[in-house]
Amino acid sequence: MAAEEDEAAADAALLKQFRNPDTRNLAFHQLVTKYQKRIYWQVRRIVIDHEDANDVVQNVFIKVWKNLDNFKESSRLYTWLYRIAVNESLTFLKQKKLNMFVSFEKVEFALSRKLRDSSYFKGDEVEKKLQDAILRLPEKQRIVFNLKYFEEMKYEEMAEALDTSVGALKASFHHAVKKIEEFLRKN
């Protein structure tokens, strides 16, 4: 709890620096350094490919740069960043779907193939199976599973980031775990 309060205080200080034209660039550089890994891994788990993740992460931070002045401190900075990252990732996948002119399921298969061919994936066969199972989940369940299982994010924070209720998130996570378990049993 104290760590969370410290982080909130540090974010508030960063925002104050960002609003000062003299320290604006320095503050933003610090913000990117602080959150780049968390944002990158969140995006990477959705879009799978490193190059795609790199493009999306850059878009996320450019959007943050443009809109940080309008950020209301009623919500926490990193939940706001997560929300932008999730939205940008989903927009990217939609765009990809349009470009490929195929159904969403086929994009998922394309992502699965990419996962196997990627040189930036060091997981063994079981981990590949788990990623395959995650890719077969519906969009919302996939995001919820990644945030809860890998990031170990609290439901309350997820609710803030994804603009939904805690109950809905729990249900989504429950369904996601059931489907993954079923996939692993069959394969």
Partner: peptide, 29 residues
């Protein structure tokens, strides 16, 4: 209720090019 899932290590199987996170803030700036 997911015994098979629990057997899989919760490590991150993805990697990035070397030095990627060192250069990313400068690129974004």
């Amino acid at each position: 209720d997911a015994p098979l899932l629990r057997t899989i290590p919760k490590s991150n199987p993805f990697t990035v090019p070397e030095g990627y996170f060192d250069n990313l803030p400068s690129q974004i700036m």
